[in-house]
Nucleic acid binder design. Structure first.
Length: 687
RNA sequence: GGGCGCGUAGCUCAGGUGGAUAGAGCAUCAGCCUUCUAAGCUGAGGGUCGUAGGUUCGAGUCCUACCGCGCCUACCA
């Protein structure tokens, strides 16, 4: 069953492992086994209320959440919409509506407020009991597969912070989809035959005069950061081209040899690319990011994916051979295919070249072939070999040209998300236009450019790093830096800096712990801070990377959420340490008892906040916005921090209240841990 | 020129399907550690939501125009 593949998403290694022994002895309130979120309790109530009103209202009923908590939990603005047609004041209509609807299960009362709102107050006791009894559902996932392609770093140098945003966004989206029951395949496309790899090979061969054996030795040398070395070498090669334009011939020659698999140069290119891919996967694994499959450009070439796609494109007349103008001799796609509103003035000059006049295919062409394969429309498949087994047992496969056994089925998705920055939207449009021109309208519709804005550097950070800025750059909110010049912040450097800072903080608070333990804690804090930082911004907001902000451990950060989660665990631990027995929540906390305790407004708001986790994730998936999950996590942590400050759980004298507070703590814990799991953030043992 | 995106507090950003008094974090100021409690909590100040029109009972949100900024608009990937 596909659910097996999804299980790793929800491994509750936090409180659940910590409390496994408690679960043996006492009835744990919520069996946490399945990896799929149940339908949102809150959302179901909203629907029930809308349905109740729908019988009395001639149009779809909308519900909203009031801005002020004192107005109740759900508001129905239907009276405003009816006021015009009925020609009656909204307030009168609202009163009549509320009367007509009568009693709704789970709802305590309907109130008319303002000039016509119907505010709904929920039955707090019933709501709490539902939360208490909520069981993880087995899920109703479909067999349809969603493909998410992300990371896609050119394998010619170390990863930088821009790549981190891509990978964290992509990985979190994968987790979100899996949490809502979908089957997801995470693909990381490797362009191992492009000019970027060629340039590093040129650097090794022509600037460094190194043999393949010598490069091998560099890769094998644990004292050498090969991806960092290539970072510098790539920058040097780019500079050399600028100073010696004739050297561009080296690149052409190298590119040709790589594409045709000729001699030592091609071998060297493969060696370099593979080593860099291993470095990238290691970097990403530090951030809890894993992949299922690595489709590589070299196999797209050798298995003639493009040739097959080319035939289809020609046959369906999606592209044509240009006979005049600047694109003479090229196979091009007319701009009318991928640009709206240019039909009339569409000129051949605007057409997109798919095959160059020398017969070689452009990147977009190969991307069309790849996209066809993702949907199972190419009529061809890669062969696969095991690339790596992660410490948790998960396997990642890479494409290969030789038949091998044991690999799962890859590709053939029904929906495809390409996590690619917004600068490439033009190329993504061309790919989609290709599908459309081939007659695959449904797949074109299901090809989603999951775009995001770039990560630039704040002027302050540029200055800190010794990057020279013009006076006008200094006034900008952000500065885009060039990887070709070797500028930018390397991913591993940032992670190392974060860990070092977290380690100092952890050590100052927990000097008694072993160094290894403190380092493990610091690592989780650093990764949590980094992932949260990359997720807190909406996708189309440019991140002006600033060391000061990225290193912040207070305020709206992953650290804050981790800290709140640790506090939930700590309460349970202290409770057990105090010698008290874990209450049987289900029998102690009846609807009446819940209602008594939830008369306290703070407790009620806490319960509401925590119960909205599923709804928050559903909404984030629907809007394709991982930042919504991050924001929800922060709000939930804030809610708990208030609770933590206001109530004493362990020493609460009243038995019923104590049991209630303890239950609410465990509920908070469950929702926080699940949310962090979706964000790919682990909780340290202590902080 | 065309396409996409952005413009909300001193700074960085949120603001599902138009709705009630526009919210967070940072920074500033004033308080809170014998506690499950300071990577935290409470409070204060801080806003012509780029500008001008329009639609609507109602606009930060939708429409139009304009201003400013960014990215894209390669026989590079």
């Amino acid at each position: 069953m596909f659910i097996v593949r999804q299980l790793p998403v929800f491994k509750f290694d936090g409180l659940i492992a910590f409390c496994s022994e408690i679960r043996e002895r006492y009835l744990w309130h919520t069996p946490i086994v399945a990896g799929i979120l149940k339908d949102s309790m809150f959302h179901l109530l909203e629907k029930r209320i809308a349905d109740a009103f729908a019988a009395h209202v001639p149009r779809p009923v909308q519900t909203e959440q009031p801005k002020q908590t004192s107005f109740g939990e759900i508001a129905v603005p239907a009276a405003f919409q009816l006021a015009r047609t009925l020609k009656k004041p909204p307030k009168v209509i609202a009163a009549e509506l509320a009367e007509a609807v009568g009693k709704i299960p789970g709802v305590a009362s309907l109130e008319i407020a303002g000039n016509g709102y119907i505010n709904v107050r929920l039955d707090r006791g019933a709501y709490a009991v539902a939360a208490l009894k909520q069981e993880a559902s087995a899920g109703s996932g479909t067999a349809d597969k969603v493909i998410v392609e992300h990371t896609n770093i050119n394998p010619n140098k170390a990863a930088h912070i821009g790549h981190l945003r891509n990978a964290v966004l992509g990985d979190t989206f994968v987790r979100m989809l899996r949490a809502t029951g979908q089957t997801v395949e995470a693909q990381n496309y490797i362009d191992n035959t492009g000019v970027q790899v060629a340039d590093v090979v040129v650097g090794f061969e022509h600037l460094e005069h190194k043999s393949a054996a010598q490069v091998h030795a560099l890769i094998a040398d644990p004292a050498v950061r090969f991806d960092y070395l290539c970072w510098d070498l790539y920058a040097r090669t780019s500079q050399y081209y600028a100073a010696h334009p004739e050297a561009i011939e080296w690149r052409k020659d190298t590119l040709h040899k790589i594409e045709h698999g000729e001699g030592e140069t091609a071998t060297l290119a493969h060696t370099v690319a593979d080593a860099i891919v291993r470095a990238h996967l290691t970097t990403m694994y530090r951030l809890n990011i894993e992949y299922d499959v690595l489709p590589r450009e070299s196999e797209i070439l050798h298995l003639q994916f493009w040739a097959t796609a080319f035939e289809q494109l020609k046959e369906r007349k999606a592209i044509y051979l240009e006979t005049e103008g600047k694109n003479k001799g090229c196979w091009v796609m007319p701009s009318s295919a991928f640009r709206q509103g240019v039909e009339d003035e569409a000129s051949a000059e605007d057409s997109k070249v798919i095959v160059r006049s020398n017969g070689t295919v452009t990147y977009v062409g190969k991307d069309i072939a790849y996209q066809l394969w993702k949907f199972g429309l190419l009529g061809k498949d890669f062969f696969y070999r095991l690339w790596h087994t992660y410490p948790d047992g998960h396997k990642v496969w890479a494409s290969t040209t030789e038949a091998q056994t044991g690999a799962p089925n890859f590709g053939g998705g029904t929906r495809v998300y390409n996590v690619i920055d917004s600068r490439q939207s033009y190329l993504q449009d061309v790919v989609v236009a290709g599908l459309n021109a081939l007659g695959y309208a449904a797949q074109a519709e299901a090809s989603i450019h999951f775009s995001y804005e770039m990560v630039a550097l704040s002027p302050r950070t540029c200055i800190e790093m010794g990057i020279e800025l013009s006076d006008e750059d200094k006034k900008r909110p952000y500065v885009e830096v060039s990887g070709r010049k070797g500028l930018g912040v390397k991913a591993d450097d940032l992670i190392d800096t974060l860990i070092a800072k977290a380690f100092d903080e952890v050590s100052s608070r927990n000097a008694e712990q072993s160094e290894a333990s403190r380092r493990a804690v610091a690592t989780r804090i650093a990764i949590g801070a980094l992932r949260y930082f990359m997720l807190k911004y909406t996708r189309n907001s440019v991140i002006a990377f600033d060391f000061g902000e990225a290193l912040a451990f207070t305020g709206e950060t992953g650290v804050y959420v981790q800290y709140a989660t640790i506090r939930t665990r700590k309460i349970v631990r202290k409770f057990l340490d105090s010698g008290q027995a874990m209450p049987d929540f289900a029998s102690v906390l009846t609807a009446e008892a819940m209602a008594r305790q939830l008369a306290d407004e703070t407790c009620w708001q806490c319960l509401l906040d925590a119960s909205k986790m599923e709804a928050a994730i559903e909404r984030a998936v629907a809007s394709g916005e991982p930042s919504h999950v991050a924001r929800y996590a922060f709000q939930l942590a804030q809610s708990f921090s208030g609770f933590y400050d206001k109530f004493q759980v362990v020493t609460e004298p009243d038995a019923e209240k104590r049991a209630f507070l303890l239950w609410l703590t465990t509920y908070f814990n469950q929702q926080l841990e699940r949310t962090l799991q979706v964000l790919g953030i682990e909780v340290p043992d202590y902080m």
